[in-house]
């Protein structure tokens, strides 16, 4: 069996706001096997980015555990965290905002190497830069250009090269393609998948685009207002979505295929409610077409309804 690389146990992240506690991530239990991809989907404000950042300890968790190879990294002190960070990297959403405009491409890529002192002599650093640029498909001539001279797709390749500089095992991809055009998006997705096959990376792929997530993931977790409402294998989730929110989300995707046009769609009413002081019970209650009184009151746990298919909904218990 494949080995679990990342696991979270009852991970919580609350933010204090003037009008109450904002439950950004609330009791999330996920696990990612080595060499596999977990897709995390949800609408804006559902806490998917906060989850990714809490796992990397870019944001400190309120409570819970993050296990990396079985060790709780939330308990690590500064020095051990510094060491483990070499194994965990992140690719950010916006290739326009996540690169320092005053640094050249080679400075950006070597920044993690400089900070972590993994290489010292100039020759091996410049060799490493050429190697990384070749891996991500950036031409050698861009080595001394500044980010503003490059387009979105090339910038995102710099972001990927930077994430690879320390030879990580686990990479959080926080909407890496949503700022790009479709044809460029496909190039970057292919690159990420090639890298995974070659280097055996483990990805947590955060996105709001369901067609992308199906394409790249082994497992998918659907989030709604800080909670994981459904986790399943990618094919299983699309074939047999059980949570009403997952069903609505799948129905809402505009499919570029005329033969599916006649199909009646279940559109959900209303908008995402506030994650500040959320209601007790199912958070999807207010928008759910199938809601009933059992949905309220107590927390609905994730239940395994089929092998490795977990749902948190009273209808499935």
């Amino acid at each position: 069996m494949s080995k679990t690389l990342i696991q979270t146990n009852n991970l919580k992240k609350y933010f204090q706001t003037p009008i109450g506690m904002l439950h950004a991530v609330d009791d999330v239990n996920i696990s990612i096997n080595k060499g596999e991809t977990l897709g995390v989907v949800g609408e804006s404000g559902c806490g998917k980015s906060t989850l990714g950042r809490t796992i990397l300890r870019l944001i400190e968790a309120t409570s819970g555990e993050v296990l990396y190879n079985g060790e709780n990294i939330l308990k690590y002190d500064k020095n051990r965290l510094f060491e483990i960070r070499k194994r965990m990297q992140i690719i950010f959403q916006d290739p326009y905002a996540s690169l320092n405009p005053r640094m050249t491409v080679s400075e950006i890529i070597t920044d993690p190497i400089r900070v972590n002192k993994t290489l010292s002599d100039k020759k091996s650093i410049s060799d490493k830069v050429s190697e990384l640029m070749e891996i991500v498909g950036l031409a050698e001539r861009f080595v001394n250009t500044y980010p503003h001279e490059l387009d979105g797709g090339r910038r995102q390749r710099i972001g990927i090269a930077r994430a690879l500089a320390l030879g990580p095992e686990f990479i959080v991809c926080d909407e890496p393609v949503s700022a790009l055009d479709v044809s460029i998006q496909a190039q970057i997705l292919n690159l990420l998948m090639d890298l995974q096959e070659k280097e055996g990376f483990t990805y947590m792929f955060i996105t709001h685009d369901l067609s992308v997530v199906k394409h790249i993931s082994d497992q998918i977790a659907v989030m709604y207002l800080g909670q994981c409402v459904e986790i399943a294998k990618a094919d299983e989730l699309f074939m047999n979505p059980l949570h009403p929110y997952t069903q609505a989300l799948l129905d809402a995707i505009p499919v570029p295929n005329l033969s599916l046009l006649g199909k009646e769609k279940k559109l959900i009413e209303g908008e995402v409610t506030s994650p500040i002081n959320p209601i007790q019970g199912c958070r999807f209650y207010a928008r759910c077409p199938l809601s009933k009184k059992e949905c309220l009151g107590s927390l609905i746990p994730l239940k395994e309804v089929a092998p490795s298919h977990y749902v948190s909904c009273v209808l499935c218990i």
């Binding site: 479709v182 044809s183 496909a186 190039q187 292919n190 998948m193 067609s211 199906k214 394409h215």
Partner: peptide, 13 residues
């Protein structure tokens, strides 16, 4: 565009 009805490992951009 990833085609949701077909299983392909690579896109053809």
């Amino acid at each position: 565009i990833p085609d949701m009805s077909k299983k392909t490992r690579r896109l053809a951009p």
